[in-house]
Design a protein around this nucleic acid. Sequence first.
DNA 1: ACCTGAACACCGTTCAAGT
DNA 2: ACCTGAACACCGTTCAAGT
Lengths: 226, 226
Amino acid sequence: MLTEAIALLDADGEGALTFRALAARLGGGVASIYWYVSSKDELLDRATDQVISEYVARIADLPGSEDPLADLRALAVDLFDTIREHPWTGRYMMRDSSTQPHVVRAYEALGEQVMRLGMPPRETFHAVSTVLGFVIGTAIDLGQEPPAELAATLADRDSGLEQYAQVWRDLDPEEFPYIHAIIEEFVGHDDADQFRAGLDLILEGMRQQAGGAADADRAGASAGPD
Amino acid sequence: MLTEAIALLDADGEGALTFRALAARLGGGVASIYWYVSSKDELLDRATDQVISEYVARIADLPGSEDPLADLRALAVDLFDTIREHPWTGRYMMRDSSTQPHVVRAYEALGEQVMRLGMPPRETFHAVSTVLGFVIGTAIDLGQEPPAELAATLADRDSGLEQYAQVWRDLDPEEFPYIHAIIEEFVGHDDADQFRAGLDLILEGMRQQAGGAADADRAGASAGPD
DNA sequence: ACCTGAACACCGTTCAAGT
DNA sequence: ACCTGAACACCGTTCAAGT
């Protein structure tokens, strides 16, 4: 059942997951679903955990290096990609630990890399929260479909980004110097690049906070100060 | 009308904003609303812009210092607080530039501070996107009410955080060393602190990327290397 | 130009009843 | 133990009709 729910969500977004649509797909009645799940919220929670369980299985096979920040980076990038493939999961991450055991395992995996930096518990907790907040927040932000109206009016444009750019170009350059400075960057930008650049900013801040030498368990050759 | 809509949204969350409820509050019929607004999405977009217009007015009075990162930090903290006071705005930020002119102004204000760091357009764009993604993402994440079920079952607990902690304490400490390491931090944590710590991580990364000396327009006395 | 009542086509959820 | 049809109490949106 979760598999069918995920298929519906991936295909047409959160609005497409209807108990009636799901029941039709399963060849049963609407009310049957309530035997397996107590509400639509719980269905989304469980579907999200299912998606993350694949992520957890995947990262278990990762080699791991002597550089905690490099490993953390790899985990974060994969998590970002996972959420982007299933944009609806972003909003249901970590809502209920008991029905989402795999989400807890994912957090644990990220956290263990940060622990290797040897910072006190509070700094460790804040660092992990920051990375997760950025990964999930950015994935949600980039994943939301534009308002239907806009998409329909100017759908013939190259990428959809042009629609925003058009409005921006009409702004007074004196009054909006920043917007005009980055407008071409915005039009040609790639979501994944943008995410990675931000992640590196955070990781750089973490390395700085951890005290320059990022490796607490090993001598660090690759992560020296620059 | 927007004022009444915002009052409803603030009082009882996004689910409480109903065209019927709004019409009742305005003492009119349901269909009247469609003369001012073409859909519920547009209503939310405009209400969000209204909230942000107050933010924009507020930051216009800010003094501004010789340290761009300090100014950027102040802008980001205020934006975070604004979104947290109206948690529903997070998801409607920057959806339509033409109906949300104040959101564009807010982005411009953050961007102008980053421009002072003198980085190339691409790095500048990425840095601003990172800060915004983190601010909005974190505000959404922290702002979402827990699943109704959980809230009802154990509502007598101190803060609600204990509910998560309880599940975590039962996890195997060997298998979940990170979770156990930060569990007490989590229980006592303050959302605003957590946000600020993450923001400082990003700002530290930006200072590093901008080349150590953060001030491009002035000699920097307060922002030296530590 | 502005507002309305009544309908339309949906929702999630419940419940008595079936096997 | 598992499933069902039919109903309930809602939604956003439309539309012909009013002033």
